[in-house]
Structures are given as C-alpha cells and as structure tokens.
C-alpha cells in the first residue's frame, strides 16, 4: 500500500456494470516525506475521501477486493484516511499541533 493525496474527482457514468455508485478520484502517490512519487492515477474510493485528503491506497488486483463488488476491473482503491504518518522521525499529515 502507499500514501497518497486526493487531488481531483472523475465523473464517468458509462462504466463497467459492477462499479455503479463507486466514486473515482485522482490520486497522487506520496513518498515518506510527503513529496510526489510517480504519476497521478485514478482510484476507486471506498471511504468518503475528497480532494486534499491524505489517504492510503492499495493498487493491483487487491484493489478490487475493497470495492462493493469484488469481481471488477479495478487496480487502485483508496482504503482510508491518514491522520498522521511518521518515518525517519519526519511527520506527514496532521502533526500534534493539528497543522495539515
């Protein structure tokens, strides 16, 4: 799984049948410093994340297991919010002081 920041929303009404009602968001993967890592991608969103949120997501086939219907062609899914992540004693997200 990776850290990511939701940067936009995608509207696609004509889609694979099993994906009705699943929101799609643009997601920028982040490294442990919170800097952009690689290209942005589109992910299914199973938590109510919106643009600007720090999240963690899974890619590959397992992403489909997070969707309401699991037999769907999905290779990225946002699993949850990240209040705070720290690595090499660097903090990302909401630090103790509550700054984003």
């Amino acid at each position: 799984m990776y850290l990511g920041r939701v940067i936009g929303r995608v509207v696609a009404t004509q889609r694979y049948a099993g994906l009705t009602g699943v929101p799609l968001h643009w997601l920028q993967p982040l490294d442990e410093h919170g800097a952009d890592m690689g290209d942005a991608l589109v992910a299914c969103t199973v938590v109510s994340a919106g643009p600007g949120d720090l999240v963690h997501f899974v890619d590959g086939r397992e992403a489909a297991l997070a969707c309401p219907e699991t037999f769907v062609p999905v290779d990225a899914a946002i699993l949850g919010f990240v209040e705070q992540a720290h690595a090499n004693d660097k903090f990302i997200g909401r630090t103790a002081a509550g700054a984003r």
């Binding site: 936009g8 696609a12 009404t13 643009p51």
Partner: peptide
Amino acid sequence: AVIMAVVDSWDLGG
C-alpha cells in the same frame, strides 16, 4: 488492459 469506463469530466481541486 481493459477499458472499464468512459470519462465524462474530471476536475483538479475544483
């Protein structure tokens, strides 16, 4: 590789 949706629109930060 499979096409699974036709995009209507997208926005970045509004």
